[in-house]
Design a protein around this nucleic acid. Structure first.
Lengths: 148, 148
DNA sequence: ATCAAATTTGTAATGATTACAATTTTGAAA
DNA sequence: TTTCAAAATTGTAATCATTACAAATTTGAT
């Protein structure tokens, strides 16, 4: 569940992505690399508060925004309530449970390409995300969900 | 751009989906069927205010929520700021411009299936959405975007 | 015509995100 | 090491999409 990352490897990764490392940035990136849970801003903030007592939630927002701009992580809009973040860089899709909000990685066998049509011509910097949305086994078993 | 729908056909469609037709519901569904622009709540509300002077934005929210529950329309979470709605029922993917927020339909040649793995086993009622995100030609040509 | 259920409406609350200004840290140059 | 401007961080206040909720209206069966 929780791969371990060397601080220097994380630092190197940030530098590769043209991001100046700082205590806060290293903590956020390390958290994302070690936790494949697609956390929200609040989850990251709560988890890192202990390690960095002066941490501000605005810093988490700033940092994640920077990481996304620099393409070091992915912002997932799978949950309509809030953005989830993903530091995993291999091609994969995501599965979302409408009931508990859990997001899990699922394999994606091939690239889903943007077709070349009149509409899509000239689009640049396209990144593709595949979302599967439904209800997970645990929620179906433990909650009384009315799924038609 | 704007296919025309008979009121009775829309009414029939709502009934098929187990939705009791009302003036408001017919107006919203007709709007979604005739406009493939993936409008937001505000856009739908603005457009229908003239036709229905007493219309409330809460009604738009209620109506869209009902339509989604009954699977008459799709809620797109492609834009992190707000939900977009789609009344088009054929299989297709979506293309999103980060700069202007435009969402356009693009062909999707095959079903993107949820693979059967330990993690995905037991998931129910899964619906798949494919999002392509980038910058559209118009924005690239008319705005000074720094795309690295 | 009556009346309960369903629907619509308006207002107030919620909560994620952003704006912004102040404070702190960093790192190069003297 | 000291200085100082740029960058990064922080806290607070504002924004704005969405939801909660209660009152008003409409619907449809009797």
């Amino acid at each position: 569940m929780s791969e371990k990352w060397e601080l220097n490897a994380v630092k190197q990764y940030l530098i590769e992505k043209d991001i100046k490392p700082s205590v806060q940035r290293l903590a956020v990136m390390t958290y994302l690399l070690e936790h494949r849970t697609h956390p929200t801003v609040d989850e990251i903030y709560s988890e890192l508060q202990d390690k960095i007592p002066t941490l501000s939630k605005t810093t988490i927002y700033n940092t994640l925004k920077l990481f996304v701009e620099k393409k070091a992580i992915l912002a997932l809009t799978i949950d309509e309530k809030m953005v989830r973040f993903d530091g995993y860089r291999q091609r994969h899709a995501h599965l979302f449970c409408h009931s508990c909000g859990k997001v899990v990685d699922v394999p994606l066998e091939y690239d889903v390409e943007l077709p070349q049509t009149e509409e899509t011509k000239g689009f640049a910097d396209v990144e593709t995300q595949v979302y599967h949305k439904g209800y997970c086994k645990e929620c179906l078993e433990t909650k009384n969900l009315y799924i038609k």
